Simulated scan of single mutants.
Amino acid sequence: MRHGKKVNHLGRQTAHRKSMLANMACSLIEHKRINTTVAKAKALKGFIEPMITKSKEDTTHNRRIVFSRLRQKEAVTELFRDVAAKVGDRPGGYTRIIKLGNRLGDNADMAMIELVDYNEIYNADKKAKKTTRRSRRGGKPAEAPVVDTKSSNEEEE
């Protein structure tokens, strides 16, 4: 039975698992997307999303909490400076997991985990949709351009 088993141990001891997730999180912050197994990607998602939420409010306390889990000063700086600015208006769901198929060597399920706001391919069509909205019904007609009704004689006076 698996009562009360909420964390996937990933076949590692606690210290090894925490170090591995910290290293993967630093790589994700640096490169914006990484390839890994599906199980590790799901574990990483649960590890990094609370830290991205903390990074939205730049306080000394939040920086220390994130640094205690990441353990790399450069990654913490980039998280609070670049990533937090990009995800500032997003209420959650900062990462996306895309399944890639099986690895050739051991047939493990592979996945790509990426930061959502840094993917130009997915975000390009989202921006295009928000430009205009037209209804199928008549609605109000488009306004005619404003034309200056003054004649040239009036302007000379």
Rank of each mutant, 00 (worst) to 15 (best):
T14V: 15
N35C: 13
M24T: 02
V38W: 07
A15F: 08
V7Q: 14
Q72L: 05
H31P: 08
A43Y: 04
R69Y: 08
M20W: 01
N23S: 13
K42N: 14
S19N: 15
Q72D: 13
N23K: 08
R33K: 15
M51V: 02
T36G: 01
I29V: 11
L21G: 07
G11R: 10
R64F: 00
E49D: 14
G46R: 12
C26H: 00
R71E: 12
P50C: 06
L21I: 02
L28S: 12
R17D: 11
N23E: 05
A43V: 12
T59V: 10
T37H: 12
S55L: 05
R63L: 07
T37I: 15
H9M: 14
F67I: 00
M24G: 06
R71W: 00
T36L: 04
E57P: 00
S68D: 04
V7Y: 13
K32D: 05
T59G: 02
T37F: 08
I65V: 15
L70C: 09
M24R: 05
H61V: 11
K73M: 02
M24L: 15
P50I: 10
L21K: 04
E74K: 07
E49V: 04
H16P: 01
L70Y: 06
I65M: 09
R17F: 02
K42T: 07
K32A: 09
R63D: 03
P50A: 10
E57Y: 12
K73C: 00
E30V: 00
N23I: 02
K45I: 13
V66E: 08
E30W: 04
R69S: 09
A25C: 05
G11A: 11
L28W: 05
H9P: 11
T37D: 13
L70D: 05
F67M: 15
L70P: 10
K45G: 03
N23L: 04
D58W: 06
K40Y: 01
T14W: 04
L21Q: 04
E49T: 11
A22N: 04
V66D: 04
K45A: 10
R63I: 00
